[in-house]
């Protein structure tokens, strides 16, 4: 499905601020895998997602998707296969446009956009049916500008938008981190529902150790641009949150860098 072959990403190459963000990373992701990614700040988690999405070009290595080499393709040409959700709920939707307009934009992800009206009655009906799944009452607010919705509503809408056109791969970059705990839980539930039901291959960055082990079927830990742990199956099921945190402590030199993962 997704294959990374010896990927290296260097920021500010050749300057004093040079930083190797991804260090010769290889990763094979079979179809249907739901991988959670953990690691301290600056471990390269987000950079990894950005390289997969095509936002950052890589210095070395090869990225292939469904056997096709996509290393040289810009982000917008990978978007037909890859859907993304960002940490900031404002990033996934256009605030000045209405709920239905945002959905119409997402309905054409990766496809040619023509000169027909973006919204017609049958599309509107389709949007309404989809919004019912969220149980947020948004089906009655199709004409409301998205900026009037709460962060949680926007993130839930973004999630729904990614499934309007079935992606092959979903990239989630701490997409519940900036929501209040209750909303975060709801959005996470929705994620599992939408992703697991459709068996979409998923990479999810999280700071929450519990989430990292309970969600998905595989967990990788990153540190200084490398993958230092890759567990699945029985090994993962036996792993406790305490053990994972211990492991994390070991690699990060005895320091737990983020309170967030202990508090949750």
């Amino acid at each position: 499905m997704l294959e990374l072959h010896e990927i290296t990403k260097i920021f500010n190459k050749g300057s004093v601020n040079e930083k190797i963000a991804l260090d010769n990373i290889s990763l094979k992701v079979p179809p249907g895998d739901f991988i959670t990614i953990i690691g301290g700040n600056g471990a390269g988690k987000s950079t990894l997602l950005n390289c997969v999405a095509g936002v950052f070009p890589v210095e070395r290595g090869k990225i292939s998707l469904n056997g096709e080499d996509v290393t040289a393709l810009p982000d917008y040409r990978r978007a037909g296969d890859i859907a993304r959700i960002f940490q900031d709920p404002m990033m996934g939707t256009a605030g000045s446009m209405t709920v239905e307009e945002n959905m119409a934009l997402a309905l054409k992800r990766g496809q040619k956009r023509g000169l027909v009206r973006g919204i017609n009655e049958s599309r509107r009906q389709f949007f309404r049916e989809k919004l019912l799944l969220l149980q947020l009452g948004l089906e009655n607010r199709l004409g409301v500008p998205v900026m009037l919705l709460s962060g949680g509503q926007r993130q839930a809408l973004t999630l729904l938008m990614t499934t309007l056109v079935q992606p092959r791969l979903v990239l989630l970059d701490e997409h519940t981190a900036s929501l209040d705990p209750k909303t975060a839980l709801k959005v996470l539930e929705l994620t599992r529902e939408l992703v697991e039901k459709n068996k979409i291959t998923t990479l999810m960055v999280t700071h929450n150790m519990e989430q990292a082990l309970r969600v998905g079927n595989r967990t990788i830990m990153m540190h200084e641009g490398k993958i230092i742990l890759d567990i699945k199956g029985e090994q993962r099921e036996k792993m406790t949150v305490a053990e994972l945190i211990d492991m994390f402590r070991d690699v990060s030199g005895g320091q737990v860098q983020s309170d967030r993962m202990l508090l949750t």
């Binding site: 999405a53 978007a79 859907a83 993304r84 990033m91 256009a94 446009m97 307009e101 934009l105 054409k108």
Partner: peptide, 15 residues
């Protein structure tokens, strides 16, 4: 319109 509003989003939608 969405390009003027949220360019990052539109690139992630393939525009």
């Amino acid at each position: 319109r969405a390009t003027g509003d949220n360019e990052i989003m539109m690139r992630s939608l393939g525009v």
